[in-house]
């Protein structure tokens, strides 16, 4: 169990919200506030902030997930439904894709975007990743894209996702991580703390939310720590795939019997 999770077991304990320490119960509301604010501009900002590369990162996750026709897939913190849309094509009419997110505004945006693309038969569930409301061994594949760092108790969320997976099923975590090169790290810091809030202010009229984005990335566990957390949550054969020099990492683990 991570130090973060241990501290949350104590009454009156705090957790991080970006660089701030806030009471555990408050983080969820604060994160909800951020995503309520950015939901309508979420995809535009993603394209702008990553120069479109987020599409390649998601494509890598889709390919690595290797979803087959007839499989059941859960897209946790699926937001605007980019991954769900591709998975729904792959599972076909015999399969099932469930889009879930804790934030109603993001789910609303996801529902609208999926409908625009002609995907209307996809169940949408508002759910907390820490307590997924699904029966044990329900899914062949679970993905969480750019969502885990916003979860208050990551260990609990990982255990919850492991429980919902069928034996042999896989979890793919797509998340910002730590750059592997010092030079890239310095450039990335400048970009994150100077350019990103500026873009947030100019495009989404919301500097604070994008400052939180940069801060939450720095507070998120690095590649090896997250791998250890996945192993501790019950996953096996966990692999880390660094993308764009470690700016983003994909962790894939399997529920081994």
């Amino acid at each position: 169990m991570s130090e973060d999770a241990k501290s949350q077991d104590k009454p009156g304990s705090t957790t991080h919200f970006g660089f701030q320490q806030v009471p555990v119960g408050e983080k969820r509301q604060r994160v909800a506030g951020v995503f309520d604010s950015v939901a309508s501009k979420y995809d535009v900002m993603n394209d702008l902030m990553s120069f479109g590369v987020h599409r390649l990162w998601k494509r890598f996750v889709i390919d690595l997930a290797g979803v087959r026709a007839g499989e059941k897939v859960l897209d946790v913190a699926g937001g605007t439904g980019d991954l769900s849309r591709e998975f729904s094509k792959q599972v076909g009419p015999r399969g099932l894709v469930v889009l879930s997110d804790i934030n109603a505004a993001m789910l609303g945006e996801g529902r609208r975007r999926l409908a625009d693309k002609g995907v209307v038969n996809l169940p949408i569930v508002q759910a907390n990743a820490e307590m997924l409301p699904f029966a044990e061994e329900s899914f062949d594949c679970i993905t969480i894209g750019f969502g885990l760092r916003n979860v208050t108790d990551k260990d609990k969320a990982l255990r919850s996702m492991c429980r919902a997976l069928k034996p042999g099923g896989r979890l793919l975590v797509l998340e910002f991580s730590k750059p592997t090169s010092q030079t890239l790290s310095k450039i990335y810091d400048q970009y994150s703390f100077k350019l990103l809030p500026l873009m947030g202010r100019l495009v989404a009229n919301d500097e604070a939310s994008y400052r939180y984005l940069a801060e939450s990335i720095r507070m998120h566990p690095d590649q090896q720590t997250l791998k250890s957390m996945m192993d501790a949550a019950g996953f096996g054969r966990t692999q880390v795939y660094n993308l764009t020099g470690g700016v983003v990492a994909v962790h894939r683990g399997f529920r081994i019997e």
């Binding site: 890598f60 390919d63 690595l64 290797g66 087959r68 692999q239 880390v240 795939y241 660094n242 993308l243």
Partner: peptide
């Protein structure tokens, strides 16, 4: 490298399927 393994796995599985 893990990314090379991922590329090999994606290609192999697409072929086998």
């Amino acid at each position: 490298p893990s990314v090379l393994c991922a590329a090999a796995e994606i290609a192999l599985n697409r072929y086998l399927r």
